Amino acid sequence: MHFIITDAWLAKSRAIHLSGTKLVLALVGLSFALMLCAAGLYHWVFLKGAREGWPVVGSMLRLVVKDEFEQRDRFMRENLDAMARKLGEMQAKMVQLEALGERVSGLAGVNPAEIRAVAGRGGALVEGRPLTLEELQKTLADLDELTASRADLLTVMESRLFDAKIRKMMVPTQQPVQSGNLGSSFGWRIDPFTGRSALHTGLDFQADVGTAIHSAAGGVVVTSEVHPAYGNMVEVDHGNDLVTRYAHASKLLVRKGDLIKRGQKIAEVGTTGRSTGPHLHFEVLVQGVPQDPQKFLAAGQNMPPVAQATPAGLHR
């Protein structure tokens, strides 16, 4: 395409040749410039009309704002409905946890009525109508308060159950010799050395020399020494004035001050001290007074066995 440009007196002229590519680029550039001008003019007119309150522009602005608000409200409603469903599921789970907590509270020694009195009950979501944001926030606050009270009560129950477990582990109910046969029992008998009646203050477990002796409960070693009558002897303090004694051992594996777990190997069977043959003499003392160990061992017959711990690394 050719363009010839002349001046007013036709004295000068200039020819411009546009190829197809240049013509397309020129049209595109012109269109883009017109679009920018139109957008700028529209923006200027729209803002000016909005500020000065032109009727037509005001109506258009109200329509745009109304549509935007409707979309935003629809989006918020969908999210509120989704949150309300999730909240309903959380409340249902809290009801299940409450029932479980009441059952566990009996094991922990907590009155279930205390749980209901302290924690209260969460209000159920209202079905059949949409929730407002304020109602949803209030329900969430109530659920948060309920969860906090449940956590406190579960912590109390955990503490009580843990204390009960510790107390149970500190009572000498585990057999000190697994493969030994019971010999002399607790009570009066004829002393094998003097031939006279004497009080036998413990239980004798007959076993081969070297048989493992295990602690009947957890505690602290208070004595690990050679005694004139008891031979190699270990005493373990279990708290509450409760002590167990293991006598006539061939080898002692713990020292005074060691922390002992229930079922831990602490010595080996022997025949040291005032003994007529290899055996373990086992005593239970409460406030220094010998008790019948069979009563304690009988109470532990239905308890699950405890993994035996090794004494290595437990010295202090």
Results as ranks from 00 to 15, higher is better:
Leu10Gln: 09
Ala11Gln: 12
Ala11Pro: 00
Ala11Lys: 13
Lys12Glu: 08
Lys12Phe: 06
Lys12Thr: 07
Ser13Arg: 08
Ser13Ala: 02
Ser13Tyr: 01
Arg14Leu: 03
Arg14Gln: 07
Arg14Met: 04
Ile16Cys: 00
Ile16Arg: 00
His17Arg: 14
Leu18Gln: 02
Leu18Phe: 04
Ser19His: 08
Ser19Thr: 15
Ser19Ile: 01
Thr21Glu: 15
Thr21His: 08
Lys22Arg: 13
Lys22Ala: 15
Leu23Tyr: 01
Val24Glu: 10
Val24Lys: 12
Leu25Phe: 01
Leu25Thr: 01
Ala26Cys: 07
Ala26Tyr: 02
Ala26Phe: 03
Leu27Thr: 08
Leu27Ile: 12
Leu27His: 02
Leu27Asn: 09
Leu27Lys: 05
Val28Ala: 14
Val28Lys: 07
Gly29Trp: 00
Gly29Val: 02
Leu30Thr: 14
Leu30Asn: 07
Leu30Tyr: 09
Leu30Gly: 15
Ser31Trp: 12
Phe32Glu: 06
Phe32Leu: 14
Phe32Met: 12
Ala33Asn: 06
Ala33Asp: 04
Met35Tyr: 13
Met35Phe: 15
Met35Asn: 11
Leu36Phe: 14
Leu36Val: 15
Leu36Thr: 11
Leu36Lys: 05
Cys37Asp: 07
Cys37Glu: 08
Cys37Ala: 14
Ala38Met: 07
Gly40Gln: 09
Gly40Thr: 06
Leu41Gln: 10
Tyr42Arg: 09
Tyr42Leu: 12
Tyr42Ile: 02
Tyr42Ser: 06
His43Val: 08
His43Ala: 14
His43Phe: 05
Trp44Phe: 04
Val45Thr: 11
Val45Leu: 14
Phe46Ile: 02
Phe46Tyr: 13
Leu47Ser: 11
Leu47Ala: 12
Leu47Thr: 08
Lys48His: 13
Lys48Gln: 11
Lys48Glu: 14
Lys48Pro: 00
Gly49Ile: 01
Gly49Ser: 03
Ala50His: 09
Ala50Lys: 06
Arg51Val: 12
Arg51Leu: 11
Arg51Asp: 11
Glu52Gln: 11
Glu52Met: 05
Glu52Lys: 06
Gly53Asn: 08
Gly53Tyr: 09
Gly53Pro: 06
Trp54Gln: 13
Pro55Leu: 15
Pro55His: 10
Val56Thr: 10
Val56Met: 10
Val56His: 10
Val56Lys: 11
Val57Arg: 00
Gly58Arg: 12
Gly58Gln: 14
Gly58Thr: 15
Gly58Asn: 12
Ser59Leu: 15
Met60Lys: 10
Leu61Ala: 10
Leu61Met: 11
Leu61Phe: 07
Leu61Gly: 03
Arg62Asn: 04
Arg62Glu: 09
Arg62Tyr: 04
Val64Tyr: 09
Val64Ile: 09
Lys66Asp: 13
Asp67Phe: 05
Asp67Thr: 04
Asp67Ser: 08
